[in-house]
Design a protein around this nucleic acid. Structure first.
Lengths: 340, 340
DNA sequence: TTGAAAGCGCTAACAG
DNA sequence: CTGTTAGCGCTTTCAA
């Protein structure tokens, strides 16, 4: 099987190479008759356009990269939806890369995509990465930081307002009459956790009349939730909180499961609010009230921002912080775990 | 900021362009002194190798594609681990694409990757796709079908033996003395579901002395599990099975939750086995016994197969079915839900 | 509307 | 060990 390029197609169709290229890039400027001959020659020969040559000639690609720390995290997966949809509208393809929370791998993808000449990158990283992105930007590849607020005004970012999410959760618990609220989460060195607690604390301080206890955990997984549940069950009744705000849904689900098994009622005895609104929150034994970050919108906003800096770099630069760094407020989804 | 290519680097380092290229491709054939000058010029100028030109010249890339129907499915995500690790060893990068169960999108990625000249593709698709892959292979891009057994002897594939998985589950339940087994799953038009039931049925027929009831469900999600659990609770005690084999873990977890809430004991009253061994199986209220498909190994085997057909196309062709189409037997992970 | 031809940045073959 | 150079397949002037 010989290589098939536009030259072979041109020959088979009896036209010049340039005409075939024109057919590919400006179909309207080729006569219907030749267009037909070209089309049929392409079908017959099984022509596949060579992207490397095209890109070399053009000087750029039609591709953007989306680098995530963990593809299986539903949060990033859902965002990917919005990213692909918006990118497709703009005629761009998306290459996904999974760094798996491995810095070396993240680095190598950053290099790789730069060498590939992607038009831009969406980067979700568990570490501070702005300097690296600044360097890449200096070489002509713009990026949008996903999931964390950029510190530099030059770095576009889309992120979630976790302080307001925490506030939402605490306000809701107070609104259903709870007064002894426990925040379950940690370590507080993790920005998101700290912000969620901060928000809850703000709400409680502002409203007055309620107390906030902090129950620290090492990691935010379901088994830690089980342990916290056990600890709550072991307390004297009058020492128990009447509401729990967990830093994520996994913790919350673990806590609910253990409380129920131990004979307590949710929400009657202890109301529970989670965070993230993962798929299992809804189908949990007691459907879980949860703080829901925006999903679809988030991804498309990231691409939107990237498109803006891709083209109108100067315009965007002068646009300033408020348009370069989008912060989304989360919603509260109320379900049975606080329906009382 | 001027474009910087090897020409600019060569000029800055005071060497010829070819020497810079040699430094990049055969570092050992460049004198240490010039290598240093080149290295420092590259750092100073911020040289980024242009992949398009490289690939055009070379005639091929160092990239493979992995197309999945759903990135957030932990099954594919875990496989991706093995894929990346093995690919990295072979000096290849992996581009992930998410078709999101959308045929048009899958098609467009297939085209895109072909145009990008990837060395090969790993394709997990919810639909029959062998003919399409055969066409792509005819144009020089080999592929491995992931998750379904290929029908054609020319198409390499890696898949799971669900019949043997079903057998394992049923044998285990019988080995702990259960005699009234219920299979919960559906629709039976889904190959995996049918195979799992087939395996269970085979085991029970061969062993004798046990009965197999089929409880059909519309989809394999947690809420269906809750419904099945309710239905079981509603039965007369002597009409209840003493074991449940669920077609996946989500169903199993839903069933366990509902049974426990209804006052039954797991495994004492009803033992439960799931399938897939998802993350939540282990951290569920009663840790779930589950049939575990191989994960890491699966991904690396897929790459291995791809590497084989990439190089030794003739050798591989003569290798025959047994080496081109890998079928992995799953394991059984025994936990508390059947520990009785 | 079509054809001819230059050249994108790199690699490798070849000459020195 | 280093330099020179052809050419990968495509797009796009420019001329006809």
């Amino acid at each position: 099987m010989p290589r098939v390029g536009i030259r072979e197609v041109a020959q088979a169709a009896g036209v010049a190479q340039g005409t075939v290229s024109h057919y590919l890039n400006h179909p309207d400027r080729v006569s219907a008759e030749k267009a037909d001959r070209i089309r049929s020659a392409m079908d017959r020969l099984g022509f596949v356009r060579n992207n490397a040559a095209r890109q070399l000639r053009l000087g750029h690609s039609f591709t953007i990269a989306y680098i995530v720390p963990d593809v299986s995290n539903p949060f990033f997966a859902t965002i990917a939806e919005g990213v692909e949809a918006r990118a497709a509208e703009a005629g761009l393809s998306v290459f996904l890369a999974n760094s798996n929370r491995n810095i070396a791998r993240e680095e190598s993808y950053l290099d790789l995509f730069q060498e590939f000449g992607v038009r831009g990158m969406l980067v979700a990283s568990p570490r501070p990465i702005e300097e690296r992105l600044a360097g890449i930007r200096a070489h002509g590849t713009p990026s949008v930081l996903v999931g964390q607020l950029a510190a530099s005004p030059e770095q576009p970012s889309v992120s979630i307002d976790d302080v307001s999410g925490g506030r939402l959760a605490a306000q809701h618990l107070m609104s259903i009459g709870r007064r002894r609220i426990a925040f379950v989460g940690g370590p507080l060195g993790v920005r998101q956790v700290a912000d969620r607690l901060q928000g809850a604390s703000n709400a409680i301080r502002d409203a007055g009349g309620a107390t906030l206890e902090v129950i620290d955990v090492v990691s935010r997984v379901m088994s830690e939730g089980h342990e916290v549940g056990e600890a709550l069950l072991a307390r004297e009744v009058d020492q128990r909180p009447d509401a729990v705000f967990a830093a994520n849904d996994l913790l919350a689900i673990g806590i609910v499961q253990t409380l129920l098994t131990g004979g307590l009622r949710v929400p009657e005895d202890i109301a529970v609010v989670g965070y993230d609104d993962i798929e299992y929150a809804e189908s949990s034994l007691v459907p879980l009230t949860s703080v829901r970050p925006p999903h679809e919108e988030f991804g498309s906003a990231a691409v939107e921002l990237l498109l803006a800096v891709m083209d109108g770099a100067p315009a965007a630069a002068s646009a300033g912080r408020e348009t370069m760094q989008l912060v989304f407020p989360p919603d509260l989804v109320v379900r049975q775990s606080t329906a009382g």
